[in-house]
Design a protein around this nucleic acid. Structure first.
Lengths: 212, 212
DNA sequence: ATCCGCGCTGAGCGCTCGCTTACACTGCTG
DNA sequence: CAGCAGTGTAAGCGAGCGCTCAGCGCGGAT
């Protein structure tokens, strides 16, 4: 159905547009630290040390530790939203759309599992206003999936008891990948994405013409 | 297939065996605080205030804040392991076993979503030794699911590309419920459990004799 | 040659953290 | 009644936190 080539597993080329270079290094260091220990257990000294700078350097580029998290989180959510939207736009029918969306969504969460962990599990640490921005992006993503599911049910390709619950389940599978996937996991991000795309179609009652 | 009656949505009767009463109130306060803000963002003063005591009272019953988390986490993991084991023991075949396991697992995570959040998402805050104990319980749970899946594949009732990946997916669905479920969610824990039990059977390629 | 402004640092401020200590109250036991 | 174990508190210690600030080095414009 889709078959996206891997963009490379390293996050080195994340945020190529962020200027100056030091700000990007701080974001990278923040992702690393937040993912490993969690936002609240991470100190600004940790982040600075990982980025090879003094603690005060953080405040030259970001007004606060929370603002650094927000920049990371918003960017990640925008990437995911874009990737979901693209999968839907490029697909002709709901089954292909859901399949490709799940495949790319899952692959992204496995490939970028460090940033994905921050994106999915540290958003409650955001200040109220910033949280609102991110929450709105999350609603957009859920709405996208929900709408495709509704179309599929209307077309008779999906059979689900409750579309809202099914949408949650579809996203849950991909989101949870960020929790358990590591670089030592047996399947590559692409293999996992393909497998999950398949599982989800079956879960939704869409015949995929398979047999072992 | 199963149909477990709800044990009551309130966690008031959790840990009825914990003595003295003040220790249980502290655990309850800890669960509440850890779930809402996360372990590291929770202060011992928060916990004590929620339990209606002075900060020093915590140390009468627990040697440290981390020990309180450990007590909560271990107990929760033991409950989940027990519930999974029981579902398997009571079922005659792999399909029924997986269905009932997912149903009870999901219902538990929705009904006890506050403690489930702590159990599933705060374990990395545990000290190394305590983490080991909990990690071992988690391995037991995963092994349980994995074994049932293997049996089902051998019997020809399940069709999956990779049993390990499928086991992860099955557990992911239930675990992630703790992240998004709230008391205001549209489906009751029991309804959600039934729906997820159904979805998982279909995901595993087990015909359930359904049609809308 | 001088100046400016950006990127960065060393030092440290004010505060809150987990936890300890000294002590008080209660009810039970001899 | 004295003694004691169990349960609680008020006060506060030392450490580490997020963040600030005065100043420094340096490349480019004047």
């Amino acid at each position: 159905m889709s078959g996206i080539p891997s963009a490379g597993p390293q996050p080195a080329d994340l945020w190529p547009e962020v200027q100056p270079d030091a700000a990007r290094r701080l974001m990278l260091a923040g992702v690393e630290s937040f993912a490993r220990r969690g936002y609240h257990a991470t100190t600004t000294r940790d982040i600075a040390a990982t980025a090879g700078m003094s603690p005060a350097a953080l405040y030259v580029h970001f007004p606060s530790k929370a603002a650094l998290l927000f920049t990371i989180s918003r960017s990640g959510h925008e990437q995911v939203l874009g990737l979901a939207q693209q999968a839907i736009d490029e697909a002709g029918d709901p089954a292909t759309a859901i399949h490709d969306l799940v495949e790319r969504f899952t692959t992204w969460h496995a490939q970028r599992h460090t940033i994905a962990r921050v994106v999915q599990y540290e958003l409650e640490a955001l200040p109220e206003q910033e949280y609102g921005v991110v929450a709105s992006l999350r609603k957009d993503i859920e709405r996208l999936v929900r709408d495709v599911l509704d179309r599929g049910v209307a077309d008779g390709v999906f059979t689900v008891g409750d579309a809202g619950t099914a949408a949650r389940a579809v996203l849950s599978l991909g989101v949870d990948v960020a929790r358990w996937y590591t670089d030592r996991s047996r399947l590559t991000p692409e293999e996992l994405g393909r497998e999950y795309g398949h599982l989800v179609l079956r879960m939704l009652g869409a015949a995929t013409g398979e047999r072992p």
